[in-house]
Write a protein that binds this DNA or RNA. Structure first.
Lengths: 199, 199
DNA sequence: TCGTAAATGGAACAACGCTCCGCTTCACTT
DNA sequence: AAGTGAAGCGGAGCGTTGTTCCATTTACGA
């Protein structure tokens, strides 16, 4: 749900099925490549990963910013939907939270690259950021409440605080192998769990 | 004075004369190109403008950041030295201030590009920024005081404030022809001069 | 004046962005 | 089911840029 048709509204002509399929494939492939190679990854690489030609990418996303924004929205949606799913399938709410944060970090890599790719249209960026908060903070809160409720996490932390903290840990790294944000985030979560004996 | 030899200290071997000449030429040429084409200007273009080969640039400045930083320092120095010089050669202190601000805006183009080219080494950037303030604020103050003293500018504005204002007017433009910071700066200075009749 | 090491220039290679067009595949009509 | 128009696709090819490398030139000390 929620993702609907990604279309402006009533489409004059329904898009061809293969086109829609390719668009989804591209979004997924681009997301993967962005994580490993950054948002400046060569178009060829994304095309190869998706198993399509470069022309297809340019057809769907004329500029790099278009592609990054699309991936961004796609990721926000996936992240939001993954929250309840993880909560349902995981035994421990805290483990669900951990896995969700991991997805969230993947997403942040794209998000930070976005700021670079979009410095021209800063208005549109603000809008996306607002959308991002509206959509994700409640999900994070749901996971956090569950973990706190199960006695697996210390209370007193707001969802926005946690997301902001994780986000800040992920800034500033640029193909710098000396700094791995994920390790720091891991520490942060370990702290959130607190001393196990306290429960 | 002040520029000294740009060298770490006692050089074991004096550099060859043509090498230092070329280095100066490159600094000047790069500064010009940065203003017109941004800090991402092709190396070839800078080389051509300086009348040297590309190899020469890579010899003096292995990475683009090295070049940008060198230009940055060079510009700070030039700006600082230009202050008193303009004050001496111009009839009106306010005109001197105007011309100085114009140089300052040129310099800001480089400065802003610097932030992008240096996102990795943010520590070094802070150091440069401090150097920049220490060196330039007094010069700006000197010009400002002169203009105020001559009754050509309203009092009550601190040098740091003025520089900050001009600096802020110059952010955010990226080959966007709709926004010309220089026009805005001109307005700001017009406001600083105030109503001519007040003197 | 002469030898040598520093310095130079630009050809050459690699990687990338973007365009363009012949071919493929879909969706709709009859 | 078969035909048909066009939407969609792939990737070769062109232009641009970063970076290296080395034959040649040039400055400086002896």
């Amino acid at each position: 749900m929620a993702v609907a048709d990604e279309d402006g509204g009533a489409s004059a002509r329904p898009k061809r099925a293969d086109a829609v399929r390719n668009q989804q494939t591209l979004l997924a492939a681009a997301a993967e490549v962005f994580v490993t190679s950054g948002v400046d990854a060569p178009i060829r690489e994304i095309a190869k990963r998706a198993g399509v030609g470069m022309g297809t990418i340019y057809r769907h996303f004329p500029t790099r910013a278009d592609l990054v924004v699309a991936v961004y929205r796609h990721q926000v949606e996936a992240c939001a939907e993954a929250g309840p799913a993880l909560l349902a399938e995981e035994e421990s709410p805290f483990t669900a939270l951990e896995r969700w944060v991991d997805l969230f970090v993947d997403f942040l890599v794209t998000k930070h690259g976005l700021a670079d790719a979009l410095r021209s249209d800063s208005g549109g960026f603000e809008a996306l950021h607002a959308y991002f908060l509206d959509r994700l903070v409640p999900v994070c809160g749901q996971l956090l409440d569950a973990a706190v409720g199960a006695g697996e996490a210390r209370p007193g932390i707001e969802p926005y605080e946690l997301m902001r903290g994780v986000g800040n840990l992920c800034v500033g790294r640029d193909d710098d192998s000396r700094y791995d944000p994920r390790r720091l985030v891991d520490l942060l979560l370990r702290g959130l769990r607190g001393t196990r004996s306290s429960s």
